[in-house]
Design a protein around this nucleic acid. Structure first.
Lengths: 209, 209
DNA sequence: TTACAAACCAAGCGCTTGCTTGGTATGGTC
DNA sequence: GACCATACCAAGCAAGCGCTTGGTTTGTAA
């Protein structure tokens, strides 16, 4: 199950929009703008211009501006949960499963579609409370993947700290990479960065204690 | 050198505003509002109402709304650099110095004046580019404290990963605690949380490798 | 008592915002 | 060829925004 296969299966189930469709293109541009300028600083006129229509025409596709933000978040979390699940299933040991999760999360936030993931993390407050509750449910599924693996590692004795705390720390640390990590400028590769995170946790391959 | 001594010395040097003064009170309320609602969602009318004056009167104290954000950030980073420096100086070993830094940063973001620190982290994008450059200079001093200790630990062999990467990861992890860590609801104390972070890095007292 | 600056109010200006409205192409279906 | 839903445009409305203005109160010091 590679990334594209997962994407198309979700599109078929109507769980995420086809990036080729009008809706999909708008959501992608919206994610980019929301990440670059923030939700509040992005106007409906900005959004419309990005896809080449009039600002009023946006409201044929979405009832409100906030609905666009919500759609970006919901579709992003759906896609990423599926991708993470697949990455985890493909790994054998718990240590490898964790590595797969870290690598996948780094990819999802720093990769090509990373705009949407950054929006999910940093624009949370701009979502109305009812919408937050909705997205929160989806996020719980996503988080349970992590806790499962971290708890297993703790039981193995490979992890000293509390799984719940470690996951929260990793959430912050990994999402923060979007503010400083620039792989295209040379230096550390994404795999290299994953290694660094594993090393930081004392979970490198060579490192058995 | 305790926290209050440092604060008063900075006030005397006119580097931060007295929290009792009109300006100081405004900045504190601004920090709280900016953290809770975000800079863009906070109106000058909100700010004025929080200190009990008319919205127009704000502009007697600050030329623009953005100047208020900048002042919050500049004063916060000045205070915290001084506090961190003192915490570090009071520690003996490098391991203890790092622990002091982590503990101090957790305190600065989750403690009583944590609003301002959260603003510094999460409202960065709302600052104009010239102001960003100004604050960035101050932040570099702050960051050099961390890198100094982390590099020393690496040379000691106590740290495996790259100091620069570790600092970035810690920045994300520690600042993210503001979104989930609620010490007042019982559970983990701030010292306990510091222990967890040290354990995660494989730098607990008992843990010598 | 006078003088004066700092702190504030009451009113509102000019502009941008999210969103609405009435109407017009476009493409597929019977 | 009539019908109709989908996708869009052109224009603009009501509300809220940051900020300005002219004038008043308050505190301080000679």
């Amino acid at each position: 199950m590679n990334h594209d296969t997962i994407l198309h299966s979700l599109i078929a189930d109507n769980l995420v929009s086809d990036p080729e469709s009008a809706r999909g293109r708008l959501l992608r541009e919206a994610a980019r703008l929301f990440r670059d300028k923030g939700y509040e600083r992005t106007t409906v006129r900005d959004l419309a211009a990005a896809v080449g229509i009039q600002s009023g025409s946006l409201f044929h596709h979405f009832r409100t501006k906030e609905e666009i933000l919500k759609a970006v978040m919901v579709e992003t979390i759906r896609l990423n949960t599926a991708v993470m699940q697949a990455a985890m299933d493909a790994a054998d040991t718990n240590r490898e499963k964790l590595r797969a999760l870290i690598s996948a999360e780094l990819e999802s936030i720093n990769g090509q579609t990373g705009e949407a993931m950054a929006v999910l993390v940093f624009e949370w407050r701009s979502l109305s409370e009812p919408s937050q509750a909705e997205v929160l449910k989806l996020r719980d599924i996503y988080e349970s993947l992590w806790l499962e693996v971290l708890t297993a590692l703790k039981e193995e004795g490979a992890l000293v700290a509390d799984p719940f705390v470690v996951r929260r720390m990793l959430t912050g640390a990994l999402s923060w990479t979007v503010t400083w990590y620039r792989p295209e400028r040379g230096g550390l590769s994404q795999e290299g960065l994953t290694d660094q995170v594993m090393a930081m946790l004392g979970l490198s391959k060579a490192d058995s204690r």
